[in-house]
Structure formats: structure tokens, C-alpha cells
Design a protein around this nucleic acid. Sequence first.
DNA 1: TATTGTTATACTCTATAACTATA
DNA 2: TATAGTTATAGAGTATAACAATA
Lengths: 162, 162
Amino acid sequence: MPFFPRIPAYLVRCLHQISTAIVAEAFIGEDLTLLQWAVIVHLDSEPNVDQGRLAERAGIDRTSTGQVLDQLEVKGLVVRQVDRDDRRARLLHLTSRGEQLRRRLRPIALASQDRFLAPLTSDERDVLFHLLGRIIVANRAYLRPGAGRRMPRSSRSASTDQ
Amino acid sequence: MPFFPRIPAYLVRCLHQISTAIVAEAFIGEDLTLLQWAVIVHLDSEPNVDQGRLAERAGIDRTSTGQVLDQLEVKGLVVRQVDRDDRRARLLHLTSRGEQLRRRLRPIALASQDRFLAPLTSDERDVLFHLLGRIIVANRAYLRPGAGRRMPRSSRSASTDQ
DNA sequence: TATTGTTATACTCTATAACTATA
DNA sequence: TATAGTTATAGAGTATAACAATA
């Protein structure tokens, strides 16, 4: 039975560990990490993004995004194409094999997410998503600190204290 | 602006990243990791636990707990004492220096947690803690999978599906 | 000059197995 | 035989700086 303080950082850590374990369990034998799956889902919902935009949307930093794409490319699930309008950028999309994998794993992923939320009613899930969404939006500046332009930690706002 | 699906694993990942960044920012210059701080807080609230129980209570696995304690012991913040009733076990408590550090950092940690929750009202925070607590308790079997006795992933219950 | 993506590197956290010393 | 803790090792995820190609 876990200790139970009203410390969000602690609760979030527990949630993260549980969530990671549940998804890992769901994907046993699939040779797919959480981040790889997240990128596949994102590429399906927004084909032909470039890497920078994908990193921003997914909250993954630029370097990690490149590494995950390397892995997915080796597996033949994703392709990178040089953007003809800006030849620095690479446009990304799923291969048909990537798309097939996504379709096969989708119900498994959804079931694992449902298991995670099993203790809550439908209304409670709505409330939870609403509250978490507001926290994330309000604190979005803390996502992917190393993703783009320099943003030294010590100079970021700490003025929201009560 | 982050992408915003109703996928708990994704939201939890964002929250974890934000939470980690906020605490790291709060502790800049303190040479203290999140886990080290968590262990200090736990040892303050429950002195003379042994390592196994600390690991269980804090949701940290046995190996990580030992590593964190090594770090804290080197810094002179924690001491391990062999339990006279069971000489396999080590009882843990903060040194006076550890206690001083905890007192000094406590308001800083609280302020950072408050910043994290700033977008929510007091009532909403209560609701959030209640919902998260239920999720964690219901899924607590997924915490610290490598902490103790063997528990092969593939044999754990998947019967809570709807 | 600034930006996209890459390479190289390092640290934190997590995870597993094998070991020791006790029980 | 089982448990408490350690050691060794590995992998995921994150972070930073320096670089090449392009704008």
C-alpha cells in the first residue's frame, strides 16, 4: 500500500510508473517502446509533419525525436522525406507497415488505458481529463526544455507563487 | 501548445515531465535529485524504517532505494544502522544535517508544488487528489515491479478490462 | 545569422540477475 | 529455504553542446 501525501510531484511519479508498466505489459513481445508508440500515433494523426513540429506537439525533445525516428525508420515503420520547400526539414509519415502495426496495436493500447482508468466512472474521467489538461496547458513552458532555442532554466518564470 | 488526446499515458507523461522540471528548477544549486528529496521526506515522516519498507512506501524499487541511500549517506544526510533484532535489516534516519536541509528546502518544495497546481481552485485540487489516489490504489500492483519477490510481467492480471 | 536535424556524450531512473549475510 | 541488502549491468528517457546543411 503506497504512502499517500498530497504532493503532486510524488503522485505524478507513481502515476507515471504505473502508466509505463501498464503500457509495457500491453506491448510485451512487440519490440516497441512507449515513445515509439507515441510517435506512431502522432504521425497517424498528423502526417507530413517535420521533426521539429512533431517534437513540439508530442512534448518530446528534438534529440530524442530524432533517435526515436531512427529506430522506427530501421524497422521500416516510418520514412523521412526532404521537404522540397525547405530542404533543411524532413517530412515524416508512416509506411504501410507502420500503419498496419498501428491498426493492430490500437485496441491493445486502448484496453490498457481503460484498465488504468478502470476505478473511475465516465463522468469522473471527464473531470480528470479537464483538470489535467488545465495543469498541462498552464505549465506547458516546462515541457521539452531542451527542444529548441536556448532557454536557461534559471531565468524562467517563478512568479506564479501564491 | 501541446497536442491533447484523451490518452492517460500521454497526459501522465506530460505531467511527469512538467513536474520533474518544476522540482529541478526549485532545487537548482542544491545538488539534490528528485528521488533523494523523496527519500528525505519519507524518512522524516517515518524514522527508523528499514530499506525494504521505505522502498515499498515510496514506490521506489529496492535497488534504486539502495543507490539513493548511498548518495545521501555520502553527503552525510542519512545514516544506516544495523537492526539489532534482525541483523539483515538496516534502520534509516536523517542526520541533523539532513533534517536541517529538509527544513530549509521544505518551503521551496511546497512553493513549487503550489505553482504546479496554480490553475486549480482549492476544491478542484481536492477532487484531483481524490481521483488520482483512487487510480494509484487500484493500480498499485504496477508500482515497483522489480522491488521484491519475483512477479513475471506476463502473468499479472489483465482481467479488469471493461 | 538563424534554423533543421545530426552526432556525441552524460546523467537519472528503472529493471534484472546474481551475490552476501543473515534468518 | 527465504529474506534484506548489495553489486553489476543494461536500457529508456532526458539533457546539452557542437556540428553540417540550408535558409
